[in-house]
Design a protein around this nucleic acid. Structure first.
Lengths: 350, 350
DNA sequence: TTGTAAGCGTTATCAC
DNA sequence: GTGATAACGCTTACAA
């Protein structure tokens, strides 16, 4: 199907080794020789076989990125950041979408090992991902966790300060007068869920409010989960004045319920959430959110991973905690203007 | 770093071939032998090296997917569809994001050839992608174009009927009374742009309206492009009553301008576009759109590609034209209810 | 049912 | 500066 180094070598009247040298930068090859080889490569339309290369050198030039939900814009942006940094370093990103399925996660991790990626970035499904990660730990394949930590797994980790973000959100809501704030929350076996729940409790406590169990609705962390949770909230005898959705997807679902009920945000009920929905947040009502620097999750994770792959990392695992940012818009019930271009200015222009 | 077939073989007291047979399904291996091999595999924590496998069998089990913008939800959903079908067929999808950069597209295509993918799905940047695709054609590597056709490239193609979609949109707008409809359009070297422009003209003509050059604003097909184009539109002496944005991203940018200007949709100006923004369309005002079946682009493309890889496709190239669907919501200025659950019902429930 | 031998396309190593 | 040889880990083809 395509020429090999040997064929190129033959045509250029050199050895395969010389061809190999040329396609790898050509150091230590006389310009004249090099020219002949390059000509032969062009003539034969030769593309080096990376597969074969990976076999001898065990440098496959690939890293894996495993995320639970690629349709979630948060992870899309993580991916964009990761790919950019990886490409600049000469690496390819192999992407895996587990759809929050532990079995799929396990098989993707095995797949990545089979593909001999040099390292892995994983946004784990939940605490049970520990079992899936253990083969990586056993064989010492470098990996970096993002977004979510996994108890019992000692590795580099890039995460946001979820508790602080939630506290800030609660602080804001209570400051503008909300006292009864519902919380749409996910399963307890995800670290970010636990942290956001802690921030919720602490934030309320700081305002002298105690948590009402009725107002904490546990559900799946996706649109349908948010949809159902909000239905439940609207059925409460005494309706809360505000709702905190644990992430962007649940917030979307919650919005849908609110609209169907003929209510509006923030007039009838306030709604805030984690994760800015980025380029789509232009649609009103503009959500008040705690934004996580998604792209940084990707870029930092790749940097940490490449350091580790390159043996420049040391034994100890590293923890990077990114600060989320409160962006006050309209869905909480106050009309603010922030200094952020994303909320009040042009998209990406000064 | 990890065990090899030979090491497993030694431990199990068999030959490497027997191990190979076991890891490939184990047909023609006596159960007892097979058991010993499996035990040895478990003991040594062995994972077959796909790289090496790909070298001998030239079945790498990978296909490439090249898209111009992964942050665009349309392509994210395409990816989801593609990956699902590919996985079921035992293939992995290697994803490349060209960011609409022809140079990057070229290098990704070469990269994919180096990785010896068995085939490629490409949403090309524009007509100039022809040059980037030519190496594929030269060596007969199967590929399928999606979304956009490329003049001079004869290949399988999955696309939407853009002209019909645009016509339908114009038909609707004119029917409810709009006569002056601006068009935010992209570069002319993209097939979908040309087709949508044709639909725009034809749709207007059918209503006895002639195109006003002032109302057609050419820009980059992203959020910032839509933002600027809408600024230009608002500066027109005689403001149009409606705006047709060529895709979801330009519509987002346009919305942003409208909001900054203190205007609202549809009271001050109507806004419609191509591509449903899917799970984010829950935010109001609910856009009237022509929706393309994004996931189908992915699933069909993979099916066509796998047929071709498997030699079950025949010489002739195939064209699949998907019908886009008009979803009337509120941004056009009428309050309709459609039968689609996505616009009026629950997310994914009956 | 199992094993032997050779080779996939590249690069590491060590000569020259 | 260039080349010969032997791997890398697996599978194909054939033999036993």
């Amino acid at each position: 199907m395509t020429a090999t180094v040997r064929e190129v070598a033959k045509r250029a009247g050199v050895s395969a080794m010389t061809v190999s040298r040329v396609i790898n930068g050509g150091v230590g090859v006389r310009p004249a020789t090099r020219g002949r080889v390059e000509q032969a490569i062009a003539d034969l339309d030769f593309f080096p076989n990376r597969i074969a290369r990976g076999l001898t050198s065990s440098k496959t030039g690939a890293i894996g990125l495993i995320v639970p939900d690629l349709v979630n814009p948060f992870f899309t942006v993580v991916l964009r950041g990761a790919e950019m940094v990886a490409r600049r370093a000469g690496y390819r990103v192999l992407l895996c979408n587990t759809e929050s399925d532990l079995t799929l996660e396990r098989s993707y991790i095995e797949d990545m090992m089979s593909h001999r990626v040099e390292g892995l970035i994983v946004a784990p499904v939940n605490d049970n991902s520990r079992l899936n990660l253990s083969p990586l730990m056993r064989r010492g394949l470098p990996f970096v966790l993002i977004d979510r930590g996994v108890p019992g797994v000692d590795s580099d980790l890039v995460q946001a300060d979820s508790a602080a973000g939630a506290r800030r959100l609660m602080q804001h809501l209570t400051k503008i007068g909300h006292r009864r704030i519902a919380f749409i929350i996910g399963s307890d076996d995800v670290s970010t869920t636990r942290e956001r729940a802690r921030g919720y409790r602490e934030g309320l406590a700081a305002a002298g409010i105690s948590v009402e169990a009725d107002l904490v609705i546990q559900t799946t962390v996706d649109r349908i989960g948010g949809y159902r949770a909000m239905q439940q909230i609207l059925r409460l005898e005494s309706r809360p004045t505000a709702v905190f959705a644990v992430n962007n997807m649940t917030a979307m679902g919650a919005m849908e319920t609110i609209r169907e009920a003929g209510l509006s945000v923030p007039q009838d009920i306030a709604l805030v959430c984690f994760d800015d929905v980025e380029h789509l947040a232009v649609l009103s009502p503009f959500m008040t959110v705690v934004d996580q620097p998604a792209e940084k999750f990707g870029t930092l994770a790749v940097q940490l991973l490449l350091e580790r792959i390159g043996g420049r990392a040391g034994e100890r695992s590293r923890l990077v905690v990114l600060q989320p940012e409160l962006i006050v818009r309209h869905s909480c019930g106050v009309q603010f203007r922030t200094s952020r271009s994303r909320s009040s200015g042009a998209p990406g222009v000064a």
